[in-house]
């Protein structure tokens, strides 16, 4: 039995929509699960079932309304991501947690190479060293070299998504959160993504992915969690 990396206990997320007469909606209701080191947990369910909300609560893009999220970090030991102070969360994001959103959101006029290297730059990795790694990732992701100096804003949806994934993988985080990693990708590229997830796992990364694409991701996940 592997050691636990993440324990989600009774997490609830309620939004209060002040702009719409203050009504509240609760997409996540008392969800609990555990993930061990090097596991791959796949969370699936229909659209609007709160899959992404859980992921964002773990990454602290959302403030959980209740419950605890215990993360066994290297920096701080066992820490509750719901209540941890912001600078600790920022440090964990820089060193231990990666998040890949559904859509790539980058500064215009910045090259694909710089975009993919960004997490390394942030960590203070020297430019040359970072770019060496970045070029490797770009070629592994099947991005043709003549596009490397172009801005990803001009890329196709599939290419953008590959850059987005590369950015999440390049920093080799201990916990990787993937939101619909195979959406808008063709069969061949899905294969590449699955291989990347497997390779990351083999290197010690724990993965939590959210998807409705059970066909592509199901086979590589150790555990699956269905949300109603």
């Amino acid at each position: 039995m592997n050691t636990t990396l993440l324990e989600v206990e009774d997490v609830t997320k309620t939004f209060i929509l002040h702009l719409i007469d203050g009504r509240s909606i609760t997409p996540v209701q008392a969800v609990s699960f555990r993930v061990a080191i090097q596991d791959h947990l796949l969370i699936y369910g229909r659209s609007g079932s709160g899959k992404t909300s859980i992921l964002k609560c773990i990454y602290r893009s959302y403030l959980a309304s209740g419950g605890q999220i215990w993360f066994s970090s290297e920096c701080y030991g066992r820490i509750d991501l719901v209540t941890a102070n912001e600078s600790s969360v920022l440090r964990l994001r820089e060193r231990e947690m990666g998040y890949c959103s559904q859509f790539l959101r980058v500064l215009p006029r910045v090259s694909a190479l710089d975009v993919i290297c960004e997490p390394l730059y942030r960590q203070g990795v020297a430019r040359e060293v970072a770019q060496e790694q970045g070029r490797q990732w770009l070629s592994d992701l099947g991005i043709r070299p003549h596009l490397w100096q172009a801005s990803p804003v001009t890329f196709s949806g599939g290419e953008q998504q590959r850059i987005n994934l590369g950015r999440a993988f390049i920093a080799a985080p201990r916990l990787l959160l993937l939101d619909e990693p195979t959406a808008s990708l063709d069969g061949a590229t899905k294969e590449i993504v699955v291989r990347m997830i497997r390779a990351a796992q083999a290197n010690g990364t724990t993965v939590i992915s959210v998807s409705h694409d059970l066909a592509a991701l199901g086979p590589c996940a150790n555990y699956q969690l269905a949300l109603a």
């Binding site: 002040h18 702009l19 602290r60 893009s61 969360v89």
Partner: peptide, 20 residues
């Protein structure tokens, strides 16, 4: 708060208006 949290999960009515 964290910037992405302010953008994606704003708490204050005014911030919700600003973000939207």
């Amino acid at each position: 708060g964290l910037t992405d949290q302010i953008m994606e999960d704003p708490q204050h009515p005014y911030t919700q208006l600003l973000v939207s």
